[in-house]
Design a protein around this nucleic acid. Sequence first.
DNA 1: GTTAGCACTCAAAGGCTTCAAGTGCTAACT
DNA 2: AGTTAGCACTTGAAGCCTTTGAGTGCTAAC
Lengths: 340, 340
Amino acid sequence: MELSDRKKKILQFVVDDYIETAVPVSSKSLTERHLSNISSATVRNELFALEELGYLTQLHTSSGRVPSAEAYKLYVSDLMVKDKLSVKELDYIKKIFLEKADNLEEVIKSTTKIISELTSYPSVGLKSKDSGEKIENIKFFRFKKDQALVIIVTEYRLLKDNYISVPEGMTDEQLSDAEKVLSNMFSGKNFEEICNLKPELQDDFMGYKNIFVNVIEALKVYLQASEGDVVMEGEDKILQHPEYADINKIQNFLSVVTSKDKMMNLLTEDGKDIKINVKIGTDGYDEIPADCSVVTATYTANGNKLGTYGVIGPIRMDYQKVVAVLENVGKVLESILSKR
Amino acid sequence: MELSDRKKKILQFVVDDYIETAVPVSSKSLTERHLSNISSATVRNELFALEELGYLTQLHTSSGRVPSAEAYKLYVSDLMVKDKLSVKELDYIKKIFLEKADNLEEVIKSTTKIISELTSYPSVGLKSKDSGEKIENIKFFRFKKDQALVIIVTEYRLLKDNYISVPEGMTDEQLSDAEKVLSNMFSGKNFEEICNLKPELQDDFMGYKNIFVNVIEALKVYLQASEGDVVMEGEDKILQHPEYADINKIQNFLSVVTSKDKMMNLLTEDGKDIKINVKIGTDGYDEIPADCSVVTATYTANGNKLGTYGVIGPIRMDYQKVVAVLENVGKVLESILSKR
DNA sequence: GTTAGCACTCAAAGGCTTCAAGTGCTAACT
DNA sequence: AGTTAGCACTTGAAGCCTTTGAGTGCTAAC
């Protein structure tokens, strides 16, 4: 059933006011603030109807109304007026990115910092391990007799955190030869393609199968590793919001938020083409507490998904602000990432 | 004035009990738990004397006694009985270090994780940028026309986070030649010595002065950079302690603890030979709230200070446990770090 | 369909009393 | 001199009651 225009308007005001004040909204305050042309009794009738429809709830009979998860959903999809950032805020975004945006790690850190700062919610960033990008080059740097650092250059970045063990007796010349062979073999392929290469089918190994196997092994471990790519910022900002006045709630929230695994799951989305993804209440994600919302966005470069960033906070979240910040950050990110 | 043996004993019991229960300690509970041979009235007289001496305070006339900062200091230096870890705890330490201790970053992360887990306080780790170690080797990896990654091998670790810009028109051969020249020049020196090299006095540059200057510049930036080397773990553990039942206190604590600058200052010690460093209350360190304590230790390998690790928590901290954990972690660390 | 009016509900705040833990002091005891 | 029993005194914490006022739902009139 479609809501009447007036019901929509009233629901919007209720959500607006509740987000702003965190206090259950009464019929009187609605008429005073937004609806001076109708009486509070009329508003009460409408509120009653909206409650019947499942959009509003009451804590007790004589309290004002609070939006339900359904109401927030409708609010975000239909009712909410899009917010614009101030010039100051836009400048802040640019400033931070100017200071630190040399590589993907820094971009993510800057992103989370900006988002958390501007929205005053904890923010999360997740670097995709595999964005489907193509490998350009691979290089070994031997720093001990039996160990070498693997450096991989891709379209967008430099991977330099993988190590392989070098077979005993292998000379430096052989290793640099292996480097050339593998570089040739890998170049132009993406990670998935490389990991699916069957060593037994390749006859251009020139005797470097052992190195190949080690590299693939290291890559697989790297791609699977779950921790370490989640960045959080401003966890303590959650304390500023009145719904977290209770130690148990804080504890519960922080225990979830500091668990990198759970955050990974939450952010690793079936990345459809949606630009901004809003999860309100549990929504079937049992990783987060039922009274939380998560708003995320993805950054992509030429169709490759480089990562996810977003905000986690109470269901009574300032969606206008959050969406505006994410959108603007997204725009700046796009220009930064496509610059290279 | 030296305390009588009985006063010391009583003060020890008061601190023990207060650390355990977080409840002001009464004369009655002392006689019941520890001093069945004397009466509570006698204990009261002693408590009164200890209060006069500044070791104990009362919240109000009819409450039990709480140790003062002075009392904690005496407790740690003189009164406290050293704790031993259980086999389970020792195994846990070994297990974590076995899993992750390949490089200094991982060692620090593992350290903070272990400490926070075993003590249930937030823990901090700080990697020294310059431990006085000697450089063995330097290598360039060019990944763009005008940019190269600088890899530096030292006695203890591999630095691979510095980049230099490569002068226009420099060929790969010239770059690898420069690599040899600089490697020769740097090898056996420590960072300080290298940064003090005067380019105008070196005549073995063979024309690579520009690269030299770039490398030194990058190194100086790296050595000065303040953030990024502080690792924290278990910030949320602070919520488990009853003194942080108040949101404002939590907020205050977290705002300090999440400020990497402040943590840096706190951990960057005039590293004397003290193995374990205990700061109780402010102690003149205005970085931390007055009701906090910080216990730290340094890890060194062959006289080089590789970093600092420790615990930050309420002044009513379980010093026995914390000191025991830090000491044991220290022992394992020593064996790990000197293995290489 | 709208609105004034009114009875009803209920959490929050304040005041009051009671309770119990704990001290400090005094006087007696060893 | 040091120790102890006994007791008056202090004080926060807990429980109970009342008051207050914001807010609703319903009814009857417009």
